[in-house]
Nucleic acid binder design. Structure first.
Length: 718
DNA sequence: AGCACGCCGACT
DNA sequence: GTCGGCGTGCTC
């Protein structure tokens, strides 16, 4: 039969009945030779459902669909939906014989009776393992995540299914144990709605809550209790934490409640084989509870009862591989699909969390004001210009109040000193009054070029010579935020009898003992203190956190401060926090009142007014200038969509991912790259993602010029 | 991305 | 006549 090349013409002029006839002919012709292919190279095919629908493991957006393969009889039994297979892909066909075409991996998603493909089907080359690692529910979740992020299914599946480690598959599957008993509320009784929330979980309900955790070290235990209550209902539970340390804490708390062997910890530092073994235990239904970092968000827990996330404002929750899904968004999708409960807990509150409450999707789970006040440390602010008068304080670059607080607190326990990470330095500021230095022409931030103090506007590139502070007339600029080590040295000199320890990117301390010590840490690396917690915390260089030209600067500063302050003992036990930042600023006031939710709600209202995410949804399109322009011209965006820019991307903002993409696309190194933002109103996010993906797919198919990078929910919108 | 097919210019 | 240029489109 030579009818295979007779594809239906897509002429709108053809009368409908003729078109229908044509279609029918094609379908019939197509069906006959291939629908139930008897043999392939003489091998018998499976009796029933001889067609395997396969997701090929290639991330290319334009291949984002399934391909049908014939199932040889010998593979019939193992070739079940969800298994990994190898197939020949990309080969041409000559006189019925396949040639060339590499073997690539894929997953069977479905077994069917017939194929729509108007051609002969190639047979599956091999079933790699009978393990059904991509079951239907997981596939559906991956599909939803790919759609949400304008990414390809294969990319998401790669995040969701760990690579195969043959040895790990040898262990036998064991049935799960009996559900545990319903736990006592423990620390949840400090929240008016806490016990009821646990009860709902234990009774098989699906409550959804945004939990503002009280300061102090009890949150891992509370998280573990929520999971245990869910397990008691006979369902599974999942908790995703921003890093290995936090996951280890939650893991310890759950082990305390459940004993060993009833849950698994899925983190990167277990190593690939152990990780796959644990993942398999979950996939096989032997284990019903999972604690882990972001990759665990896809853990194929059977009958999920609770999807929980801790501290969604931490950057660790965004995956850095395409399409960069955020754990909070994935768990939201999961909770909706799998009709499970949802718990988002943190000391701080992101605007996204506030939106969940505001929209009524989730209920707030917070303690009342008195309880908050009784659990929080005392917060004191000190303006940044207020340099210490004592020589000792000056030596440590500390305001007097800060210095005194440290000195007194050191008599009762350890003191935490939070310093911003190097590289967090936003822009130059007046040395005297800390007013940010701006371009007189366009008000862009000034930056230093080269070692010799030459100044330039980061926006319009105008050179600035002879800068003078518009507020105080100062002529000297300050840029350097002192890093953890330098601060530690200076504090060591100011408090010679006290041990100084540092915790930061490369050397993160797990915890510190209860006893006088200075602990200098960068945000996110603060070790909890033993006993009742730190006697005091010093939050330095607030201006650096707040001055960042980022939509989230305020939210993030408050987040950093609350996380550190939550490690300090309560005011009743003398716990004090000194924040060095302008006291009238909103995040500073929110810290003083310990009101993260109020801050996030106000921020949310503002975003709504300005049409910023998460109230609207945004996506970034970046790439070489012409590519971005062409792409935008070709894309049929939803009518409500609004395109901002494109604007040139400064080299510093281009990032490793873009550099990699550029290398792959063969782009020149010095090439000007641009970025446009596309914004749609609430409810049109799916339409935007679909439009972006369709256009990307078309472009790649046609191979029309250099590729653009798409990023839904870009993290750094200034 | 590969890789095959296809339709126009210099060659044994 | 035929080999082969790489433009165009598909991969079950």
């Amino acid at each position: 039969m030579s009818s295979d090349n007779g594809r239906p013409g897509r002429s709108a002029a053809e009368p409908p009945e003729q078109l229908a006839l044509l279609r029918e002919t094609v379908r019939k012709a197509a069906r006959e030779p291939k629908a139930r292919p008897r043999t392939w190279r003489g091998a018998a095919l499976a009796e029933r459902r001889p067609v395997a629908r396969v997701l090929v493991d290639k991330g290319l957006v334009h291949l984002d669909r399934y391909f049908d393969y014939a199932v040889p009889a010998a593979m019939d039994e193992e070739a079940q939906p969800g298994v990994r297979v190898r197939v020949r892909f990309g080969a041409g066909e000559r006189e019925g014989r396949r040639e060339g075409g590499g073997l690539i991996n894929g997953f069977i998603v479905e077994r069917v009776e017939e194929s729509d493909f108007p051609g002969a089907l190639a047979p599956l080359a091999q079933v790699l393992s009978p393990e059904r690692v991509l079951p239907p529910e997981l596939l559906l979740l991956c599909r939803a995540v790919a759609d949400r992020y304008a990414g390809s299914l294969a990319d998401v599946v790669q995040l969701a299914v760990p690579p195969r480690m043959a040895r790990a598959e040898k262990a036998a599957a064991v049935p799960p144990g009996e559900p545990p008993a319903v736990p006592e509320p423990g620390g949840w009784s400090r929240y008016p709605q806490g016990p009821a929330f646990l009860r709902a979980l234990a009774e098989g309900g699906a409550p959804r809550a945004v939990w503002t955790a009280l300061p102090g070290p009890r949150w891992p235990d509370e998280l573990a209790r929520a999971m245990t209550a869910t397990l008691a209902s006979g369902r599974g539970a999942l908790a995703v934490l921003p890093d290995g340390r936090a996951a280890a804490r939650a893991d310890a708390a759950l082990t305390e409640l459940l004993g060993k062997g009833r849950h698994v910890l899925l983190t990167a530092d277990a190593g690939p084989e152990a990780r796959y073994r644990r993942w398999l235990a979950v996939s096989r239904g032997s284990v019903r509870a999972v604690i882990g970092t972001r990759a665990a968000m896809f853990a194929p827990i059977r009958d999920l009862g609770l999807a929980a996330i801790w501290d969604d404002g931490e950057s660790g929750h965004s995956d850095d591989r395409a399409p960069q899904p955020h754990a909070r968004e994935v768990l939201l999708l999961r909770a909706a699909h799998e009709k499970s409960a949802f718990l988002l807990g943190a000391h701080a509150c992101t605007v996204e969390a506030a939106q969940l409450v505001e929209s009524g999707w989730a209920r707030p789970l917070a303690a009342d004001r008195e309880t908050v006040r009784a659990s929080a440390p005392r917060i004191r602010t000190v303006g940044d210009g207020d340099e210490g008068r004592d020589p000792a304080a000056r030596a440590a670059r500390l305001p007097t109040l800060a210095w005194q607080t440290v000195r007194e607190a050191l008599e009762h326990g350890p003191v935490l000193v939070q310093v911003p990470r190097r590289g967090y330095v936003p822009r130059l500021a007046c040395e005297r009054c800390r007013t940010p230095a701006r371009c007189v022409q366009c008000h862009g931030p000034l930056e230093a070029v080269g070692a010799r103090e030459a100044l330039r506007c980061a926006w319009c590139a105008r050179a600035e010579d002879g800068w003078r502070c518009p507020e105080c007339g100062g002529v000297r600029l300050r840029a350097q935020v002192f890093g953890a080590r330098r601060t530690a040295e200076e504090l060591g000199r100011a408090f010679p009898s006290v041990p100084v320890r540092t915790s930061g990117r490369d050397h993160i301390l797990d915890s510190v003992p209860d006893g006088p010590a200075l602990v200098v840490s960068t945000p996110g690396a603060e070790p909890p203190a033993g006993g009742p917690g730190y006697a005091a915390a010093l939050l330095l260089d607030g201006w650096a956190l707040l001055g960042r030209p980022d939509l989230r600067a305020d939210e993030e500063a408050l987040h950093r401060w609350l996380d550190a302050a939550a490690l300090v003992r309560c005011a009743g036990e003398g716990g004090t926090v000194v924040v060095v930042a302008e006291p009238t600023l909103r995040p500073v006031q929110a810290l003083v009142r310990w009101d993260p939710v109020g801050h996030a709600m106000r921020e949310l209202a503002e975003r709504a007014e300005l049409g910023f995410p998460p109230v609207s949804r945004m996506a970034a399109v970046s790439g070489p200038s012409e590519a971005v322009a062409e792409y935008l011209a070709e894309t049929e965006l939803p009518v409500e969509a609004e395109v901002l820019g494109p604007v040139p991307l400064p080299p510093a903002r281009q990032g490793a991912a873009a550099r990699g993409a550029r290398a792959a696309a063969g782009g020149a190194v010095g090439e000007q790259r641009e970025r446009a933002l596309v914004r749609v109103p609430p409810g049109r996010g799916a339409a935007l993602a679909a439009a972006l993906k369709t256009a990307q797919s078309r472009r790649l198919t046609r191979r029309a010029g250099p590729v653009v990078q798409l990023r839904v929910d870009p993290p750094d919108i200034g």
